[in-house]
Amino acid sequence: MNIDAIHSGIVLDHIKAGRGMDVYRFLKLDEVDCPVAYIRNVRSNALGRKDIIKIDSEIQVDLDVLGYIDPGITVNIIKDGKLVEKKKLSLPEKLVNVITCKNPRCITTVENALDQHFILKDRARGIYRCMFCDAERKSKALR
């Protein structure tokens, strides 16, 4: 299968196989008007199988969101057909309005104006804690 190389844009590589659609949804790629390629189950020496997303435009990508979904993703920035930057991700220290608190007793369930803040409490286990009520959420990547 051939997918054209992009001219200027972003390639999200080493996405854990099957997680590409989560990335697609979190980044709201269905709303961009540039060409986007989502390639599933590509053979990978390191991962066995991986997903890849190619975005043929220099859009802003929220690296915190990406790091939360899958800290193993490599972000390749392409300009004029050349790789100009390669970014490695990690779990972000803080998440703002990326995930919502599932605790029905949390104040964020009734105060609509409040931002959803989560703080990384345990990097090894990917545990985040709601800043308001301390309820835990586990990073999708480490589930």
Partner: peptide, 9 residues
């Protein structure tokens, strides 16, 4: 307040 985290908010 009955909701957890309300004083912090």
């Amino acid at each position: 307040h009955p909701k957890e985290g309300a004083p912090m908010a």
